[in-house]
């Protein structure tokens, strides 16, 4: 029993340390390259928070989340270029992604397993085609240039530091909200659906409604993440919103471990930083980094396969057995009366 408060304190301590590090980073990190990568980590975290609810908790796979990233990015980028204020462009971007999610979810969440994978994959490809072909809005394969930075009146996030802080402020809020959801009633219902839809229904859960809700939420978060991305880089093109990106996102959740938000965060940090390992590991040779970057997609694919085969619990599974071992040891050293 002593194990429960011990892990809880440990969790809070870890969260506090992580929060401090996140906040301190832009003031300590002088390397612009590293700050840029850390900003991408924050952008991906917003997306993965949603995907963790959908895939990690509810067990519903999506191979098309890059489409929502794109919907958010293009909608907001296009409107901002027309002179629409950023907050409005942001709301429109999120709404467009949520609407796309709803339109896809309504027919396809009655589908199971492979069919849902196929439907979302198809949706991603259709949206990619749309991003490439509707040149008037998206700029076609040349992309959309000159997207203004995020801002509210005189406050404009136009330096690497302010951009970083904006992204991470949003990411922290999103993660906090998601963490609140997963340990309460909706989170339990999502895990129940993952466990057995039949039993979930027998418990009075409207499984279809719940799945549609979580799909729309994850699409909206994908859109939010895309909005921040567009105004961060200032230039977007279809090559960002591909099946490869959708797969990387799924891999982040799987590597982290199903049913664990903390795991998904760890998976996102690891996989986002992997191609830029030289930014954190100083001695890394140029050749190694080039190797990592050249083989990026293959590494992601391999990680996904290895996780599925050898560590179904993901990083979270490791973390849990590690904590369990600590608390057993503690109980023993406390006199073995536990």
């Amino acid at each position: 029993m002593a194990a429960v408060p011990a892990t809880r304190t440990l969790r809070w301590a870890l969260a506090a340390i992580a929060g401090g590090l996140v906040l301190a980073a832009p003031f300590v990190v002088t390397d612009k390259y590293l700050l840029r990568i850390l900003t991408f980590v924050g952008i991906n975290l917003i997306m993965v928070a949603g995907l963790s609810l959908l895939f990690g908790y509810a067990g519903q796979i999506s191979l098309g989340h890059a489409a929502f990233y794109g919907l958010g990015a293009y909608t907001s980028g296009f409107l901002a270029k027309l002179g629409v204020a950023w907050p409005l462009a942001l709301v429109a971007g999120v709404a467009a992604a949520a609407l796309g999610g709803l339109l896809l979810a309504l027919p396809s969440l009655r589908l199971k397993g492979h069919y849902l994978a196929m439907a979302t994959l198809g949706f991603g490809e259709i949206m990619l085609f749309f991003f490439t072909e509707t040149e008037v809005i998206t700029g076609g394969s040349n992309g959309l240039r000159g997207i203004p930075p995020a801002g509210l009146g005189p406050l404009v996030a136009d330096t690497p530091q302010t951009k970083y802080l904006l992204v991470w402020a949003v990411a922290c809020v999103v993660l906090l909200l998601a963490a609140n959801v997963v340990r309460r009633r909706p989170g339990r219902a999502l895990r129940a659906i993952h466990g057995s839809e039949m039993a979930a229904q027998a418990c009075g859960i409207d499984t279809v409604r719940m799945k549609v809700q979580v799909f729309v939420i994850s699409a909206a978060l994908g859109g939010l993440s895309g909005v921040l991305y567009a105004h961060y880089v200032g230039f977007i093109s279809p090559s960002t919103f591909t099946l490869h990106y959708s797969l990387v996102l799924v891999t982040m959740v799987a590597l982290g471990g199903m049913g664990s938000l903390a795991g998904a965060v760890a998976g996102t940090v690891l996989l986002t930083m992997l191609p830029y390992a030289d930014a954190i590991i100083p001695g890394l040779s140029r050749a190694t980094v080039e190797l990592l970057q050249d083989w990026e997609s293959d590494i992601h694919g391999m990680v996904l396969i290895l996780v599925m085969l050898f560590m179904p619990g993901g990083l979270a599974g490791w973390g849990r057995s590690f904590l369990a071992r600590i608390s057993v040891r503690r109980a023993r050293s406390a006199g073995g009366d536990a």
Binding site: V181, R185, R188, A189, A192, H194, G195, A200, G204, I205
Partner: peptide, 28 residues
């Protein structure tokens, strides 16, 4: 058919789904 990956307590809490009301927004 139980929810094997959830705790015993959580299984009963899922059983109480219809008697509780918290949605995504309120919980978040």
């Amino acid at each position: 058919v139980l929810f094997d990956d959830m705790t015993v307590l959580e299984n009963v809490l899922v059983g109480m789904h219809v008697r509780t009301r918290a949605g995504f927004i309120g919980s978040a």
